Simulated scan of single mutants.
Amino acid sequence: MTFYTLALEITLLLAVWLAIGALQRDRRLTGRLTYAAAAAGAAIWAAGTLLEQRGEIYLLARRVQVLGILTVPALWFGVAAHAVKLPLIRRTPWIPLLLMVPVAPLYALMFAGPWSVLYLPAMDAKVMEVGPLFWWSVAYAWALVMAGVVVLLRGAIQAPEALLRRERVKMALSVLVPLAASGFNIARIHDGIWAPDFTPILIAVTLLAFRRSILSGGVLDVVPVAQSDIIRHLPFGVVLADGQGAVIDLNPAAEELLEMSYDDAVGRALEAVIGRAALDVRIEISSVRGRGGESARFALLEPPKAAVGAADGAALSSATG
């Protein structure tokens, strides 16, 4: 087993773990499905490359590999759009699927016999021959990735807090690493030389590095399940932040008191979020240590006494009626 093969196997496991973890996140987090799909795309890309290393099943290997290659750029754009909470992606979360439509015929060509010469003619041996539509697909993929970078940098400029600006700039710069690896591999293909493709490995590492920025953890990361259920039904607000001060969760009572949705609050600085509370809302900030040893902060928001009494009365009526 070579180092490259081992790296691909680790990448495959890592990407699958990231996808499963994203699906288990709070359903209120709108970008979790896109992030999970991007991780799955990286896993498919790595799986196809692994099959290619076996040496006997190039046709299947190329089909699996290309499925990941064609889907990841559109999904990356979706991840970037969700990271900055772009209004368009929040209204129409299926945009990444729409962006895959132009490359869908290319994948179909891989099953079209002699017509495959337009995209990837050589699929039965380790030969780097490509057709004219291959270069169009490369240009389209790079355009999507760079569009995601522009979205992140624009979101960083417009971010209301320094914490968000730093995270978005780091995300934008990080994607340039797998993009450079892809460019190197494409240059080798142009010369007709086969070379190891480290792009899926770097994509998975990038998704891992910014997992917390894109998929901020919920209450379940800090407290047991039974306690988290209690927190969600408390009559006063609870806002949870990680060690860097970025909000990672809040209960429905906090959403109501702050007049801010879960999706709008997650990722922003704790002080900026709780600063939206009315003057008659009492706020207490404390620290807590999670099960993994990571520190976190949380704010308790106590509504006016009249509101608490009304909420308690409603809960009592619901329980007895």
Rank of each mutant, 00 (worst) to 15 (best):
S261A: 00
G292F: 14
A241Y: 10
D280K: 00
D280S: 10
E302A: 09
Q244D: 12
I274Q: 03
G245W: 03
V288C: 02
E271F: 00
I285W: 00
G245V: 04
L270M: 14
G275M: 04
L250A: 07
A254M: 09
Y262K: 10
A265L: 01
E255G: 10
R289G: 02
L257C: 11
V247G: 07
S286W: 11
A241I: 08
A299D: 01
V266D: 00
V273C: 04
R268G: 08
A272S: 15
A246Q: 06
E284Q: 14
A265V: 04
G245Y: 03
D263F: 11
A299C: 03
A246V: 09
N251P: 11
L279A: 13
R297N: 14
N251A: 10
I285T: 05
E302K: 05
E284W: 10
D280Y: 04
N251D: 11
A246I: 06
A246W: 06
R297W: 15
L301T: 07
A272M: 07
A254D: 08
A269W: 12
Y262L: 09
V266N: 02
S295N: 14
E302D: 08
I248Q: 14
I285M: 02
V273S: 04
V266W: 04
G243S: 10
A296W: 15
A253W: 04
E271S: 08
V266T: 09
A299I: 00
A246F: 07
A246G: 11
L279I: 09
L279H: 11
V266K: 05
E256V: 11
D280N: 10
D249R: 12
Y262M: 05
V281P: 07
N251M: 06
E294L: 11
L301Q: 02
G243K: 07
S287Y: 06
V266E: 02
V273T: 06
V247W: 04
P252D: 03
R297V: 14
N251V: 12
A278F: 01
D249G: 14
S261I: 00
A253T: 04
S295L: 13
R291M: 08
I283C: 02
D242N: 15
S295H: 14
E259G: 12
E294D: 14
D264N: 12
R291C: 01
D280M: 03
R291G: 09
A254S: 12
V273Q: 01
A265F: 03
E302G: 11
G243F: 01
E271L: 07
L301W: 08
I285G: 02
R276W: 07
D263W: 05
G245A: 02
A278W: 03
V266I: 12
L301R: 04
E284A: 15
I248K: 12
R282V: 13
S286V: 14
G243V: 06
L300I: 15
V247E: 00
L301D: 02
L250Q: 12
A254H: 06
E302T: 11
L250G: 08
R291A: 06
E284K: 14
G293W: 07
D242Y: 07
A246E: 03
I274R: 00
R276E: 03
A278R: 10
V247R: 07
E271Y: 00
V288R: 09
L257M: 12
E255F: 01
V288E: 02
G275Y: 09
E255T: 13
G290P: 09
D264S: 13
V247M: 08
L300D: 02
L279T: 15
D264P: 05
R282T: 15
I283T: 10
Y262T: 01
L257A: 09
